[in-house]
């Protein structure tokens, strides 16, 4: 099935749902004035449903929009690939959204032009109400060109001095716009620690140290719940390797505790929110 056919399927189903009044809107992608870019589109009528598109340029993961509409009168339909579906599970686990408010239209995915899709191991949605087309058996892990922790692996390969130089460079470029935080589906705090002037967790200077404090703290806050969608990097205007920090945390958790993937279901605990009596302490 090609993208034109898939787009048609999406438009038809969206129009039917909106026609029947089953959902308040369908959250998907629409075209922009650039041929190789799409953006989120909220289709609220059968007519608007006809403007939904689906192609390899749909690089944005849509799930984060759900926290902006937590108490909908009618259900929201969302187009969900692997990344959106995992984000939804994690957001449900974090009490941010409710499953009953969603109609999840599952889209088995073959990847987009975003770089992070090349390391994706979760093309098929893990939660959905209906699948709009059959999963592509070649999807999934086999198709990943890059290793799961490709960014973290690259940094791990550096010497201590090189690591320091690497991050000094990264955090000298960070402008602390917090776009990574805004795009991240598991960043769901009402008020971020960086905005809490009175508590003062985050220094306000524009210094590499304060930028790094932000980067590392953010990694600690989301790392063990990261669903690896790469929205942080997509949103970063400076093109910084933000995924490296969360990948490192996931990589270490996996080394300590075995298979670890978030968002597979809506009841999953996160590593730092639990413990095992036999956890290692050989770092002491």
């Amino acid at each position: 099935m090609n993208y034109t056919e898939k787009t048609k399927l999406i438009q038809t189903r969206a129009a039917a749902l909106l026609e029947a009044g089953e959902v308040s809107y369908v959250l998907g992608w629409g075209a922009t004035r650039f041929a190789d870019k799409t953006r989120a589109r909220f289709a609220r009528s059968p007519e608007e449903a006809a403007t939904l598109v689906y192609n390899e340029h749909c690089t944005q993961s849509l799930a984060k929009y759900l926290v902006d509409d937590r108490w909908p009168e009618t259900r929201i339909a969302i187009l969900a690939r692997g990344c959106e579906s995992r984000a939804i599970n994690r957001m449900i686990r974090d009490n941010q959204i409710r499953r009953e408010n969603l109609l999840i239209l599952g889209l088995p995915c073959e990847g987009t032009d975003a770089e992070r899709c090349r390391s994706c191991r979760a093309h098929d949605p893990v939660v959905y109400d209906e699948l709009l087309w059959e999963p592509n058996s070649t999807g999934a892990a086999a198709a990943a060109e890059l290793s799961r922790y490709y960014r973290a692996d690259a940094v791990d390969a550096l010497s201590a001095a090189e690591k320091k130089a690497y991050w000094d460079d990264v955090y000298a470029r960070c402008i602390r716009c917090y776009a990574c935080r805004n795009a991240c589906p598991v960043c769901s705090c009402r008020e971020c620690f960086v905005d809490m002037h009175r508590t003062g967790f985050q220094g306000k200077r524009h210094s590499a140290t304060d930028n790094q404090t932000f980067g590392v703290t953010r990694a600690f806050h989301v790392g063990d719940r990261c669903i690896e969608c790469g929205e942080c990097e997509r949103a970063c205007p400076m093109g910084l390797p933000i995924l490296a920090q969360t990948q490192k945390i996931l990589k270490e958790i996996e080394a300590l505790a075995g298979d670890y993937e978030q968002g597979l279901d809506a009841a999953q605990d996160n590593y730092l929110g639990a413990f095992d009596l036999d956890d290692k302490d050989d770092f002491m």
Binding site: D94, Q96, S188, R190, E191, N270
Partner: peptide
């Protein structure tokens, strides 16, 4: 209360 997002991470711990 105004800052609490209700994620229940504290409840579990």
């Amino acid at each position: 209360a105004d800052k609490c997002s209700g994620c229940s991470a504290c409840e579990a711990i």
